[in-house]
Design a protein around this nucleic acid. Structure first.
Lengths: 337, 337
DNA sequence: TTGTAAGCGTTATCAG
DNA sequence: CTGATAACGCTTACAA
């Protein structure tokens, strides 16, 4: 088999009759090094001619820069997460950095520390919406040297982060329900366990209800699939003697499932049972009865996260960068009687 | 600034009192090289002790293997694409390969060939749902050496692919509409242009309508945002003298927007106006009136794509691998009167 | 069973 | 402005 090797920098050099150094400088165009125009053109032509592509790996080896960052997320699918990833990708377009996506759960459950999979060839890490990321990160980076920014609902005091204050968002949402006369507000959420610890939404729900003198009730989800949500919710609605007049959902995907469950039992979203989601995915506004939701500031979050990460990559010792954003309660028909 | 360097293989060797060779062999555990247990343990302990992580870049440089693949997609957001990416990531979990996501549009519109961004440190490329990928690939890989598999609605004869026959799917869908008595079937789709060439859905729609002696009509979308779909569709429905009795949508996201538009003009989905989407995203089954759709076999597609790519990475000269999958028309309430 | 040494394709540092 | 030459951290013949 005649496997033609990729041409190297020195092949270009040879072809153009110059040195390797010259080729590097022409191609990297740092333009600090002044190179005669005539030479420049010749090198460019030669590179084009023989189809040269710089070898990023070799560059990375010597510079220690990888031109890529890892995006850690938990792979329970949610439309919100998909949107964030998408937005992040846009945010970073033109930055020259690649995004490598990683499943944080998998990361935590596999392989010992020495496993090859644990060293990511990345200049930094952005982590979305997971509370396990902090500890995981420490475990994976004992020397804590690689730049790291968390974004979303979870963060830790000692690291760069762009948080979204879902506690405040939830308080707003529950308060809104109570003020519009709902009393029997059920929270639909995954059953907390060691993999899914209760989050701030839970705490906010419990506190707000308690302060209003209302009872907390839950529909526990075995997982976050729409099918599970629909099943659990419609069974609950059908069987309980004490019909809820509002459902507060862990996220908008859950709200979509709950929407259907409300239809299933012949009730009307909004009029009979109020519905509130969390995240702010666009789709919730396009239903026959649009769903009230706690909307997360995705654009701002992504912009800041990238700003923070880029800064820390440039300047590893810069001061701690933290910002907590407020989500916005978007009131729609699903909470109107 | 005291920036502790990452420990290298030789640091481990020093700490364990062995040579670099030994460390490599212990850690890679190719286990072909037989190493005394005592030594093995000592090396492992030393590695753990000083927090060693192998440097993938150096490995890649010497082996020419990167342990990562690129996932090229077009960054018009669609839930379907998000799901496919997600599924693909799952599919590849445990394979030892990373996924780097890439925006094919951006790829095509930026930078000359010599740009550094063009050499991806990947062992292969999977491309989703874009007709520009073939040409783009050829341009980016003049030597055509890097393994490449396309999946979804577009493919080329001369490369590995897992296609989904949206032509057949569309014929099924339109036929279903006609057989259920619809006559005035409008296709909602982006206006074809050089960036968005007409695809097989268009051809299938036109042919099927023509053969049934029906007139083709279109709602042209300026873009694929839900807002645009809603606006364009509800204006059309409001203004036309000749009310459609069915809407066939470019994809399920568009169907979601159209669903809302039908509500906006006070019509009923299904009874007044039938609605058909394409892709098979789960959400469409969770609306008050579930939407009929052309469902793509995502799991099978991803499994095959990865199988094909992995094979070609191992065996660059293996025979052409191609498979065209049939999507399935899932009939739901939106096409029932 | 273990060590030595030659690269892999760059960038960076100095001399010319 | 140009050209040797030394890293970068690792794999892999080939020796010992």
């Amino acid at each position: 088999m005649l496997l033609k090797k990729r041409p190297t920098r020195d092949d270009v050099a040879r072809a153009a009759g110059v040195s390797g150094w010259t080729v590097s400088n022409v191609l990297n165009g740092s333009s600090l090094a002044s190179i005669r125009e005539e030479t420049r053109v010749r090198v460019l032509a030669a590179a084009e001619e023989i189809g040269y592509r710089p070898n990023n790996t070799a560059r990375a080896l010597v510079t220690g820069r990888f031109s890529s960052i890892a995006f850690w997320m938990c792979f329970d699918y949610s439309q919100h997460r998909a949107h964030v990833l998408h937005r992040m990708k846009q945010q970073m377009a033109g930055s020259g950095f690649e995004i490598i996506i990683r499943d944080i759960e998998q990361e935590l459950n596999t392989a010992p520390n020495t496993s090859r999979s644990f060293h990511l060839p990345v200049d930094g890490i952005i982590v979305l919406d997971t509370d396990t990321a902090g500890p995981a990160f420490s475990r994976l980076n004992p020397s804590a040297s690689i730049p790291f920014v968390s974004m979303g609902g979870y963060w830790t005091e000692e690291r760069d982060c762009v948080g979204v204050d879902l506690y405040a968002g939830t308080v707003d949402a529950i308060t809104h329900l109570i003020e519009s006369g709902r009393r029997n507000i059920v929270y639909i959420t995954p059953q907390p366990n060691k993999h899914w610890p209760a989050d701030t939404r839970m705490a906010a729900y419990e506190k707000t209800m308690r302060e209003a003198g209302l009872e907390t009730r839950f529909i526990w989800l075995p997982d976050l699939s729409l099918a599970s949500v629909r099943k659990a919710s419609s069974e609950y609605l059908r069987d309980t003697a004490n019909k809820p007049d509002a459902l507060f959902c862990h996220n908008d995907d859950v709200a979509l499932g709950a929407y259907r469950a409300i239809c299933d039992v012949g009730a009307t979203v909004g009029h009979d049972i109020a519905l509130v989601g969390c995240d702010g995915i666009e789709e919730c506004d396009y239903l026959a009865c649009p769903i009230t939701t706690i909307s997360q500031p995705i654009d701002e979050m992504c912009a800041l996260a990238w700003e923070f990460l880029a800064r820390r990559i440039e300047e590893p010792d810069c001061p701690l960068q933290q910002r907590i954003l407020k989500p916005k309660l978007v009131v729609r028909a699903s909470t109107q009687p």
